[in-house]
């Protein structure tokens, strides 16, 4: 079994009123160390699939297992704890905590895990250096560019040592240079440290870097392509 195992997942919004099918019978397995992009037109169910895999949303049917643990039956609080320990998130709009500095944003997730202060500080320094922000650690998000904020978001996502990182349109708000820079960092982390990345994206630059591309059309997998 891979790090992510999705089996027959369907998601229907408003099942009692005007049902909207976002996912229908999606099954896939993501192995550790993959650098995978989920692509497809708007409304094809990319973000819904990521949300279901990340435990942010519950499937209408089917099951999702992460690292061998089935998450579909967990309560809200259990899901929060599960996400904290096993999943890193990178959002399209960065979604950093505006009142905390880059250092504090990265450290915060480890604080939620009750990691010791010394470990938090060391890992924060290490991660911010890895994303090239060692000289910006005490700046708040408003003082950083979009690209820098997204790099802080990547460092934050990596901080709890998750099983994989879910990145929902991570380059959508970035200029070409920042997007390229961010992708370089993610690719390096994937190759050198074996971090598993799962993207939902429209961005051709991301698709070009992905080693596996899953195409969703109308909530179903239309193509699953591995690249060398």
């Amino acid at each position: 079994m891979g790090v992510i195992h999705v089996e027959g997942v369907s998601k229907i919004y408003n099942p009692d009123k005007i049902p909207v099918t976002a996912l229908q019978g999606v099954s896939l397995t993501i192995e550790a160390g993959e650098f995978t992009a989920i692509v497809g037109p708007s409304g094809s169910g990319k973000t819904t699939l990521l949300n279901v895999i990340g435990g942010l949303d519950r499937p209408t049917s089917g099951r999702v297992a992460v690292g061998g643990h089935e998450i579909t039956g967990l309560s809200d609080n259990e899901l929060i704890d599960f996400r904290k320990e096993h999943i890193g998130f990178v959002f399209q709009a960065y979604n950093l905590i505006p009142v905390l500095t880059a250092r504090e944003n990265v450290s915060f997730v480890m604080l939620l895990q009750n990691r010791p202060a010394a470990e938090r500080e060391a890992r924060t320094q290490e991660l911010l250096a890895a994303v090239g922000l060692e000289d910006q650690i005490d700046k708040r998000p408003a003082e950083l560019s979009g690209g820098q904020q997204q790099r802080v978001a990547v460092a934050r996502a990596l901080a709890p040592k998750p099983a994989f990182i879910l990145a929902d349109e991570p380059t959508a708000n970035l200029d070409s240079h920042s997007a390229s820079n961010l992708l370089d960092i993610m690719a390096r982390l994937n190759e050198e440290e074996g971090v598993t990345f799962l993207f939902s994206t429209h961005d051709q630059r991301v698709i070009d870097r992905a080693r596996r591309v899953i195409t969703l059309v109308d909530g179903a997998i239309a193509r699953d392509e591995y690249r060398s």
């Binding site: 990340g54 942010l56 809200d76 609080n77 929060i80 704890d81 996400r83 904290k84 320990e85 998130f89 959002f91 979604n95 905590i97 505006p98 997730v109 939620l112 895990q113 934050r156 709890p160």
Partner: peptide
């Protein structure tokens, strides 16, 4: 609202 949702998404439990 969105920020609080993000905090819960990354693992801040409801009590916190």
């Amino acid at each position: 609202y969105k920020e609080l949702g993000m905090l819960m998404a990354i693992g801040m439990n409801k009590w916190r």
